[in-house]
């Protein structure tokens, strides 16, 4: 896995209304992220751990554009109201890890970023505090998204399906062997699993004499 991009994460700023006596919590807070080097950063993935934030909006600031319109709109929303807790009053998702990947960021990697701002929202008054922690930004895709891919033998059979139709039943030797290999792989896999299931020894070298439970 790639190293996360070096950045400075400021502490969350709670947005409040009213003067110091009558102020109340707006259920909204802001975390700013700036980058150490004045290099323009490219970004593909954001990882963080939630602490009772209901939803999150991510804004980016890019290198000032050339046209006036771009200059005016320095902050651009790239993720709007990404739900972290489906039910704000309940603690589901409250302490969960999240990744915002390219699909939520709009497909293409974000380029020329100078700053990042997270707007956290928690409409429920049940929670004492809310923030996100362990923010990590990545330039390249992490391993997690690769993991989800189907095992190769499954996708390969799909390809063969198309070929079969084209050749109308006449399959080449390479395909044949590939199919056989897939089958063989399958049988090996099931064989492996069977042997796993059958063994269930709980004793060590035939001995299972215990006096007391250990506290660790």
């Amino acid at each position: 896995m790639d190293k996360p991009i070096a950045c400075i994460v400021k502490s969350p700023q709670l947005i409040k209304f009213g003067d110091s006596k009558t102020e109340f919590n707006a259920g909204c807070s802001v975390i700013d992220v700036t980058f150490q080097n004045p290099v323009y950063v490219e970004l593909q993935e954001i990882h963080f751990k939630n602490y009772y934030t209901a939803s999150i909006t991510v804004l980016v600031k890019r290198k000032a554009g050339i046209t006036a319109a771009e200059k005016e709109k320095a902050w651009k929303v790239c993720v709007r109201n990404f739900t972290l807790m489906p039910h704000p009053h309940a603690d589901q998702g409250g302490e969960e890890y999240f990744s915002i990947g390219p699909s939520q960021l709009g497909g293409a990697p974000l380029q020329n970023i100078t700053a990042l701002r997270f707007v956290l929202q928690q409409p429920s008054s049940v929670w004492k505090e809310f923030y996100i922690e362990d923010i990590k930004l990545f330039k390249n895709l992490s391993l997690t998204s690769v993991d989800v891919a189907l095992p190769t033998w499954m996708s390969e059979t799909d390809k063969n399906d198309n070929c079969d139709r084209q050749l109308k039943g006449v399959s080449s030797i390479s395909q044949l062997s590939q199919n056989m290999q897939n089958l063989w792989a399958l049988t090996v896999q099931t064989g492996d699993q069977n042997s796993e299931g059958a063994l269930g020894r709980y004793d060590v070298d035939g001995s299972y004499e215990i006096n007391l439970l250990s506290y660790t």
Partner: peptide
């Protein structure tokens, strides 16, 4: 968790109980 008698603390002899 526990350990087989006389093997307290030895990881190879840790068992579930």
């Amino acid at each position: 968790k526990s350990y087989i008698r006389g093997k307290l603390g030895v990881d190879e002899f840790a068992v579930n109980y």
